[in-house]
Amino acid sequence: MKNLVLDLDDAVLSRPRLSILAALVGGDSLDFTFLQKNLGISDGNLGTHLRKLEAEKYIRSKKVFVNRKPKTWFQITSEGRNALARLFRQLEEMLAESK
């Protein structure tokens, strides 16, 4: 069990970051305000977690201008999907071991 816990990906296994990936895993791109409103994470906090996920290449962002106002879209990458799937498997293994 201890080894399995040590193997878990810290970049995914934080509640806010897991929430962000969960929101994005459907495949649609979501904007910053939508994520903030739906995940209940503060501005600064959300920005930090998004940057961390982007640094790990689990999500990608695209900045566009709508009516001259900047809008940033976030989308999950295949690395992000794989990381989430790996976490599922690891948690399942942990549950199986704890039985």
């Binding site: 296994l13 509640r15 897991l18 929430s19 969960a22 929101a23 895993v25 459907g26 989430l84 599922f88 948690l91 549950l95």
Partner: peptide
């Protein structure tokens, strides 16, 4: 808690 949360993830997909 995380397993419950993952169930929500599955529901979203």
């Amino acid at each position: 808690n995380d397993v419950r949360f993952l169930r929500d993830v599955v529901a979203r997909t």
